[in-house]
């Protein structure tokens, strides 16, 4: 675990972090991974991962449409104008 991997993760998850906090996070992450070490030693050969926390299957909704009340949704937006959610200019 090094700063490069941490910075890559921070870049991926897009949260601004100061340099001091980065150092702190790196130390913390190293401790954390050390703390997690015992997990690797558990013998899980031939064990299928439990991907789901519930046993539900085939829960399906009928295909019917319904319009939601959009006015309350729009009020929650920090920058909504003329029908659009606005973000800084995106250059492809």
């Amino acid at each position: 675990m090094d700063m490069a991997e941490l910075e890559k993760a921070i870049g991926t998850i897009k949260i601004a972090v100061s340099d001091t906090e980065k150092e702190e996070l790196l130390a913390g992450l190293k401790d954390f991974l050390r703390w997690l070490e015992p997990v690797k030693k558990i013998d899980t050969a031939n064990v299928e991962p439990a991907f789901f926390s519930h046993g539900a299957v085939n829960i399906l909704r009928e295909d019917r449409s319904e319009k939601a009340d959009i006015s309350t949704l729009r009020r929650a937006a920090p920058d909504f104008d003329e029908g659009f959610y606005r973000v800084p200019p995106v250059i492809d």
Partner: peptide, 27 residues
């Protein structure tokens, strides 16, 4: 938690941590 979680789901850590944890869940 967001940052550490991102690390744990990363390419080289997915198997030894995330999938391993799901296997432990089953056990």
């Amino acid at each position: 938690r967001s940052i550490f979680g991102t690390v744990l789901l990363g390419k080289d850590r997915f198997e030894p941590y995330y999938r391993q944890a799901l296997k432990i869940r089953r056990l």
